[in-house]
Write a protein that binds this DNA or RNA. Structure first.
Lengths: 133, 133
DNA sequence: CACGGGCTTGATATAACATAACAAACACAC
DNA sequence: GTGTGTTTGTTATGTTATATCAAGCCCGTG
């Protein structure tokens, strides 16, 4: 019974990609209920967990939401900038910063396994829009 | 009616400090119900929000939990290392890293207002404990 | 092929986290 | 002391997430 799960993941990913901005698990669920009226939360959460692990989806810890990974093919921890006005998210990768971070946390013998780096603020377009207001 | 709120905040902070490791809002609520049986969630969340803003408490976004700020007196964003085994949290401050981070996110005109930096892993004592296992 | 163990998925239920919205109390100006 | 704005308390509900068990599939064995 492997296929079903993979189909699920593909559908979830498609929905997230279509949206482009962060979606909660329940928003995804809502969309999917159009085609699969029976769907329950654990199914979605399992699909999202698998996708997150695979690197196809980012979980935004500070929003409890998910977003399709755009510049896919980096399974390293990303730096995510989140516009609090429009919801737009950008991904950045910086091995240097990650290294610096690991070394700071490692000062006392801590062994990092997962980095959460999220920056909230205002994206370029929302910032300039506000200037006029 | 200002005092009541401040007392609340002090009690919440005391509970968090006593514990030392992360607590969910509802754990705090449970503790407080010993002395204030009537207490409802919004009261706790308000106290936690005020404390977080003041810098007395950190919110751990990736755990939906809170912890008393130990090295208090830095209201800058902290780097938090979280041991997934024992729950121990350490705080670090690194203006350089913050600057680097802002500059990365700022590449496309993004204006950061709030940084979330959390590193999961294993603390020194849990790491060495595991070595023996 | 049947049947049985181990694993994946699905469904039900409920737990955990958080806030909206309104009511009551206070505090300060007049 | 009465009105107005603000803080706090309470009720209710909304949102996010997972435990648990049931059902289905895969595949190796007899």
């Amino acid at each position: 019974m492997k296929k079903r799960g993979e189909i699920m993941q593909a559908e979830v990913l498609a929905i997230l990609r279509r949206r482009g901005t962060p979606m909660s698990a329940y928003e995804v669920l809502g969309q999917l209920r159009d085609s699969h009226p029976q769907l329950a939360p654990p199914t979605i959460y399992r699909a999202l967990a698998a996708l997150t692990e695979r690197g196809g989806v980012h979980r935004l810890e500070s929003l409890n939401a998910f977003i399709a990974c755009k510049s896919d093919s980096h399974k390293d921890a990303s730096i995510l900038s989140i516009c609090d006005d429009c919801g737009e998210v950008e991904e950045f990768v910086s091995p240097d910063l990650l290294k610096a971070l690991s070394s700071i946390a490692g000062q006392s013998g801590f062994a990092p396994t997962r980095h959460v780096i999220e920056v909230h603020g205002q994206c370029a377009s929302c910032g300039s829009a506000q200037d006029q207001a």
